[in-house]
Design a protein around this nucleic acid. Structure first.
Lengths: 209, 209
DNA sequence: ACTAGTATTGATCATACGATCAACAAGAGG
DNA sequence: CCTCTTGTTGATCGTATGATCAATACTAGT
């Protein structure tokens, strides 16, 4: 079951090992969820003794939180770059929805759901969750504010709207996680819903069919 | 730390004990989450040996799933009764949103979130989750269909809309769970969003401020 | 009142988790 | 080539989980 650490040792620099461990934690979280980020699990993936992982990462809670942060932060960056290339706030918001609801990101969704659950017993993770939620909110709020400023959106509470949009996305993705069978169109109706919040014309967000 | 089972034993009928155990599991889940529904945890709450709990409940996975089902099914019944007394689909939907988003149900939200996470390693729980999601969906779909039939709602895909509404509610509640500080108004904006999906006039759902 | 059935217990196993620490060995510096 | 720093290991502790089983003791039925 468990691969023993290699005999032909190859001593590595602390920076390198730290990076290896972080990468292993990240990979495990993406492949098997945050609960798989365990002392022995990470050690096995790096092909090293659990004691070494403990040596580099004094607290597993921190490593789990770091894995979460890494995954989510990367996704935020990715979406932010994608969206930056688009001309109008409407187009940006539509692309954001399409990307986040295309059903190809279930691994990240699992991480989110597990983070919500584990965060109740891992304060460092909870802090990371709050932090990353704020980061996401800032991105969406920025788009909404731009839309309001340009007159495309008819709304006032950009911050509140951003929270709502994210809540909807998270909820729909989490739901789709369990509802294996009929994947259904996650995005099409959400588009109309958000159009309703923003006073947009029906279909303005042009969610993918 | 752990209360020892009473010495002055009081032998109970299997039906009674089964009910006690189920109640204990339910209570633990509501107070400390589904992860607290453990062999020893339940045993301590019933003031009984872990072995007895195992005797009555051959698999803890099943007990966890049962606790989840009990909690969620009760909530569905409660909301269904509340809503049944209202005259129009619009009023029913509005009341449903108000009730589910009033922020007083965080214990149930925790159970949902944990169920999503644990369901990946507990097939019985996953089955319960799917089942209860379907039950919720049926309730909302019924309201939406009534609204379409009566001409209050302008939409076609009642089933899809029901899923979306539930996803939004779940997402917003799960989010509020972590976003301790600013509870914010969970419902007000969601109302507008759903009005957008249903082709309703702005404010028709009259979400509580 | 006695007995048979069974609810209940205590002890124990196997596993998985995080964590610690003395001891080992690899590699850089003199 | 030797030495000293330190990356790395093996062994081990303490806890928590689910699960099993022979033995106990309560209670209903005769």
């Amino acid at each position: 079951m468990s691969r023993a650490p290699r005999r032909s040792s190859a001593r590595k620099s602390p920076a390198e090992r730290t990076a290896e461990i972080a990468a292993a934690a990240r990979g495990l979280a993406l492949e098997h969820g945050l609960t798989a980020v365990t002392l022995r699990g990470v050690a096995a993936r790096v092909d090293v003794t659990p004691a070494l992982v403990a040596h580099y990462e004094p607290s597993m809670d921190a490593l789990v939180a770091a894995a979460f942060t890494s995954i989510v932060a990367d996704e935020i960056d990715e979406v932010e770059r994608l969206v930056a290339g688009l001309p109008t706030p409407t187009a940006r918001l539509g692309a954001l929805l399409d990307t986040l609801l295309d059903g190809t990101r279930d691994d990240v969704t699992v991480v989110w759901v597990e983070a919500w659950a584990l965060g109740r017993r891992n304060e460092q993770l909870a802090a990371s969750v709050r932090s990353q939620m704020d980061a996401w909110q800032a991105v969406v709020q920025g788009i909404v504010e731009a839309g309001i400023a340009s007159g495309e959106f008819r709304a006032t509470d950009a911050a509140g709207i951003a929270w709502q949009v994210l809540g909807m996305i998270d909820g729909l993705n989490a739901q789709a996680l369990v509802r294996w069978g009929d994947a259904g169109a996650r995005g099409s109706l959400l588009g109309h819903a958000i159009e309703g919040m923003l006073g947009l014309a029906r279909g303005a967000l042009g969610a993918a069919g």
